[in-house]
């Protein structure tokens, strides 16, 4: 056990999800007849974190940094290359297909794209009811129908909409169907993969409020993935910042927004537009040069160093581990105050 795990997981903590040294490498193959692996996309590269029961852990970062992959690995929708994912102490990575199917009662997912996440040939009612059938949670036809109706009204849809097909709903309503589907099995844990990114701002707030209400009502635990830092601040208890397959900073919501320690976190925060011309122009922007490098060929040392304005020669060599620099505030930057010697 590294220092990270010991401290992220405190004694007496009610940890629901524990991710340890998670790696997901996608092989890149070439060749037509005989496929040869020519390299790996290191989408997630040694990521460890915990999610406590009833909390929301926000996961932010630019697109392509591995947020979705992390979420899917946690749910075992992708089988990770290495590492372990403990759900209430049980290792999901060592379960077989049948055991995992049983675990799906306890963990669910909400997708980003309200268009591709609903089967166009199923009605809203069928979509919401399918988990009940698959998991054998409906004892008879009446119970099934009542539960579907209950789920629909829970997410703010009219019961009469059950017979409509997805294309007859707006983006926000589709997202509500997705939420209802995730809730159908009464899960404990939901990975929300950018659930509001594809929605209009006025609708985003509706869905965020809905997710918060449901969390309170059913004591849900969320892994909330997003690239919008303002939404993440609103909904999360703690926030993890990802960059190129690594977690570079984790801290409580207030700490990370008030005193970000990693240069990447600082740059990200400074780029968030503020809807007020006076404030937005006065604010200092940390311009981040260039773009996220390819995870096929990540930079040596600290993966952020080519874009970092604080980088020194050392950063090119040392891979900084995630260290606790203040209580509950972890950062992976050798220049962060309190980080100590690399």
């Amino acid at each position: 056990m590294t220092a990270v795990e010991r401290t992220q997981r405190e004694p007496g903590d009610d940890v629901l999800i524990e991710v340890k040294h998670l790696k997901m490498y996608f092989p890149v193959t070439s060749g037509v007849l005989v496929q040869r692996t020519v390299g790996y996309i290191k989408a997630v590269d040694d990521v460890s974190f915990v999610v406590r029961r009833g909390e929301t852990l926000g996961l932010v970062g630019e697109s392509g940094c591995g947020k979705t992959t992390t979420g899917r690995c946690v749910l075992q929708l992708y089988r990770p290359t290495a590492g372990s994912v403990l759900f209430d102490g049980e290792d999901l990575c060592s379960m077989n297909g049948r055991e995992l199917r049983g675990m799906r009662r306890y963990m669910q997912v909400i997708f980003q794209d309200p268009y591709s996440s609903l089967n166009p040939r199923m009605t809203a009612g069928d979509i919401v009811g399918e988990p009940l059938l698959v998991q054998g949670l409906a004892t008879d036809r009446r119970a099934y129908r009542e539960r579907v109706a209950e789920l629909l009204s829970l997410v703010g849809l009219r019961t009469s909409m059950a017979d409509r097909f997805p294309h007859e709903f707006s983006g926000g309503q589709r997202q509500r169907i997705g939420v209802a589907r995730a809730l159908a099995v009464n899960p404990q844990f939901i990975v929300c993969d950018e659930p509001v990114s594809a929605l209009d701002v006025s609708i985003q707030a509706q869905i965020v409020n809905l997710l918060e209400e449901l969390q309170e009502k059913f004591d849900l635990t969320y892994l909330f993935i997003a690239h919008d830092l303002s939404v993440v601040r609103h909904i999360s208890d703690r926030v993890a910042v990802m960059y190129l397959g690594h977690i570079v900073e984790i801290a409580g919501r207030n700490a990370i927004y008030a005193t970000p320690l990693h240069p990447y976190t600082k740059a990200l925060l400074s780029a968030v537009p503020i809807p007020d011309p006076v404030i937005d122009t006065q604010r200092e922007r940390i311009p981040l040069a260039g773009e996220v490098p390819s995870p096929l060929n990540p930079p040596s040392g600290c993966v952020f160093h080519p874009r970092c304005w604080m980088a020194t020669a050392e950063c090119q060599q040392v891979i900084p581990e995630l260290r606790e620099v203040q209580t509950g505030h972890f950062v992976a930057c050798i220049h962060a105050p309190g980080y100590g010697s690399p």
Binding site: R101, R104, V109, D113, N119, E130, V134
Partner: peptide, 10 residues
């Protein structure tokens, strides 16, 4: 994603 969603419900 709806295929993934189907897998996610088991």
């Amino acid at each position: 994603d709806y295929i993934l969603a189907a897998r996610a419900i088991g």
